[in-house]
Simulated assay, not measured.
Amino acid sequence: MMVNLKNPVTNQFKQCKAGFSWTVFFFGFFPALFRGDWKWLLIILGIDLVTGFWSFGLVSGVANIVFAFIYNKLYINDLLSAGYIPADESSKNALLAKGFTVRE
């Protein structure tokens, strides 16, 4: 389910998927890189490097599966914390249905 978020200060719009992240599942840290999400890029890349080095990539693969389930929620929470708000009523309802705290 896609949600539209808007920053009322800069009028910047972002369209995000709420739910499982297939892009993180298949491509690891690259979605964070392309979104400019530097915090989670470094965290995922660091976990991949540290766990992949001594386990021949097995633990890194498991970590990417875990991040596939939680990354979109982390990304949307960071955007909401940065001042983004739902751009429309359907996005607001979708976020509330997924358990996000939305301010007006």
Rank of each mutant, 00 (worst) to 15 (best):
V3Q: 02
N4K: 14
N7V: 10
Q12N: 05
K14A: 15
K17E: 10
G19R: 01
W22K: 01
W22Y: 12
F29A: 14
F30G: 06
P31C: 14
A32T: 03
L33R: 11
F34L: 13
R35D: 08
G36W: 02
G36R: 09
D37I: 07
D37K: 08
K39G: 12
L42C: 14
G46H: 00
L49D: 05
L49N: 00
G52V: 01
F53S: 14
F53M: 12
F53L: 07
W54I: 10
S55Q: 04
S55H: 09
G57F: 03
G57Y: 00
L58N: 09
V59P: 01
V59M: 00
S60C: 11
G61F: 02
A63G: 09
A63I: 06
I65T: 11
V66T: 06
A68S: 07
A68K: 01
F69T: 13
F69D: 07
I70W: 14
Y71T: 01
Y71V: 03
K73G: 15
K73L: 13
L74M: 10
Y75W: 15
I76Q: 07
N77R: 08
D78A: 14
L79P: 05
L80V: 13
I85N: 10
A87I: 05
D88Y: 11
K92V: 07
N93W: 08
A94W: 08
L95I: 05
L95F: 14
K98W: 00
K98P: 12
T101C: 15
